[in-house]
């Protein structure tokens, strides 16, 4: 299966569109269906397609254990940081209106919602990718 040119070419073509769609889902989550979790899972699914098409040796150099863990922590940090920033502006946790009224910038809460959703998406994507890569590694090697 590794030498199948159809699988490799089709996944090479479709992976960027899957990732673009996942970004659309994350940004669109505030006003419609979708959100950070679903977008992150779709982004992880693009890495799974990459794993199926190119094999574990093809992507081991690109996605490292340390990188996924740093991304997972970064997403939680963005989420919690914006939530605590709202408390700093004397609002409740994740009450974006407090920042918006304090700074006087209109429609700032939409940007903050997108940032929080992006944080959720980054964490979900990193953790899902890490779990799948650890499962796929049959020899039980530690990725570095």
């Amino acid at each position: 299966m590794r030498e199948n040119v159809v699988i490799r070419t089709v996944s090479r073509l479709s992976i960027p569109f899957i990732q673009l769609f996942s970004l659309y889902v994350i940004v669109h989550g505030a006003s419609g269906a979708g959100g950070g979790f679903q977008g992150g899972v779709v982004f992880a699914a693009s890495f799974i397609l990459m794993l199926i098409a190119f094999g574990l040796s093809g992507i081991r150099g690109r996605i490292s254990e340390k990188g996924t863990m740093v991304l997972a922590a970064t997403g939680v940090f963005i989420y919690a940081g914006i939530g605590l920033l709202c408390i700093l502006f004397s609002g409740n946790y994740l009450a974006y209106a407090a920042i918006e009224s304090a700074l006087g910038i209109p429609h700032l809460h939409g940007l903050l919602i997108d940032l929080v959703e992006a944080g959720i998406g980054i964490t979900v994507m990193a953790v899902m990718t890490s779990i799948i890569l650890d499962f796929a590694d049959k020899e039980g090697n530690i990725r570095d």
């Binding site: 889902v25 269906a33 979708g34 959100g35 979790f37 679903q38 899972v41 779709v42």
Partner: peptide, 8 residues
């Protein structure tokens, strides 16, 4: 929303 999560 639930359908999307179920599919993914």
């Amino acid at each position: 929303d639930v359908a999307f999560t179920e599919a993914t």
